[in-house]
């Protein structure tokens, strides 16, 4: 698709935010595919609580961009029915924490129907939802990507920068599989120029394929495997320990955890023999354990000198900043772990 200036709200491309980039991808895809609908709370007039769907209502009308009542169970299920009727719905669940009231349709219908129907019914549905901490405590700060990844049948993707956000949303909107698209709240309003890992965001349509991790910082001493905002935090920590301690960390952004690109991870580990998994999601039974288990299976237990998991503690995220800092991985805590790993 050719670049369309009416689609690009941001004149200075260096100032584009993650939200802008996602909005561009959706608008360009909606332009090309009349079967794409956007539905959710405050996605229309308000333009999304992080601004990602700003302008879509005016451009595509209320039939295709629909503000929903606070009825997540109904409208996630509507997404399932719309897929059966030949549509490609983008269903926004404002914060991933709210998934509790509608996980039923996600885990029992959307993700299972393609298989349960013997391939007869496809669910090209995108669940767009905001994850991660912005200091809003236990019910508005979770990541939960490990929860989705544990349940079979969903692509689980989490872009870490505006370039990937646009390209991965574009990719999500051509999948025949259901996709859970997790946006980090702290990155949504951040401008491209403020990202450490800030590739330019082309105005024209492009895609970032799923299942291909990115090495966002090369290094030889330790491999950091992470996703989402963990990428920015890890880059910051890597920079710090490189200058202060001469530790060169290789930082890998998995970008998607279903599918999970273990080849890139294993290739790095053959070089560094040290693995640090940084995950803002809960520590136990999640991404960090899965990555470690897979590398052990693939490379053998003697292939490592050190394996560390640095993830959100297994408690509800506390409100007080002093407590939050104590339990949530951030650049300072990642740097401290890297130093301890030596």
């Amino acid at each position: 698709m050719a670049a369309d200036q009416t689609m690009t709200r941001v004149v200075d491309r260096a100032e584009i935010t993650t939200s802008d980039a996602i909005g561009e991808a959706i608008a360009q895809a909606m332009e090309a595919d009349p079967k794409i609908l956007v539905m959710g709370e405050d996605v229309g007039t308000y333009g999304g609580v992080f601004g990602a769907t700003d302008g879509l209502l005016q451009r595509f009308g209320p039939g295709r961009v629909r503000d929903m009542p606070i009825s997540e169970m109904a409208f996630t299920g509507m997404g399932v029915g719309l897929c059966m009727a030949g549509y490609r719905p983008v269903v926004e669940v404002m914060f991933v924490d709210f998934i509790g009231v509608c996980l039923e349709q996600i885990m029992n219908a959307m993700s299972k129907i393609p298989y349960m129907s013997g391939g007869n019914v496809r669910m090209p549905m995108v669940v767009k939802t905001a994850a991660g901490s912005i200091g809003s405590a236990a019910q508005h700060s979770q990541c939960l990507w490990g929860t989705f990844a544990h349940l079979p049948g969903m692509r689980v993707v989490m872009p870490a920068n505006p370039h990937d956000a646009k390209g991965m949303m574009a990719e999500a909107l051509r999948q025949h599989d259901p996709v859970v698209f997790l946006e980090h709240k702290a990155l949504m309003r951040r401008k491209l120029s403020a990202f450490r890992n800030g590739s330019p965001v082309p105005a024209e349509f492009y895609r970032v394929p799923f299942g291909k991790a990115a090495i966002v910082r090369p290094g030889s001493d330790v491999t950091i495997v992470t996703v989402s905002k963990g990428v920015e935090d890890s880059l910051s920590a890597a920079q710090e320990v490189a200058s202060s301690d001469g530790i060169e960390a290789e930082v890998i952004d998995l970008r998607t955890i279903v599918p999970l690109d273990m080849e890139t991870v294993c290739a790095s580990l053959r070089k560094t023999r040290r693995l640090l998994v940084v995950d803002e999601d809960y520590l136990s039974f999640g991404l960090s354990g899965e990555v470690v288990a897979r590398v052990v299976e693939m490379l053998g237990p003697s292939s490592f000198d050190k394996v560390v998991r640095h993830a959100m503690a297994d408690i509800p995220l506390p409100a007080a900043k002093s407590l939050e800092d104590a339990v949530l991985p951030g650049s300072a805590s990642i740097a401290a772990v890297l130093r301890r790993m030596g």
């Binding site: 029915g81 009727a85 299972k112 129907s117």
Partner: peptide, 28 residues
């Protein structure tokens, strides 16, 4: 869990969860 796309028939084993899916068709 029978699904017949052509006949626009489906079902769910989760009690009460049939209604939102039908509502999606109604919206379409």
């Amino acid at each position: 869990h029978p699904f017949d796309r052509e006949k626009r028939f489906s079902a769910t084993g989760i009690v009460g969860s049939s209604l939102p899916v039908a509502l999606g068709y109604a919206y379409a």
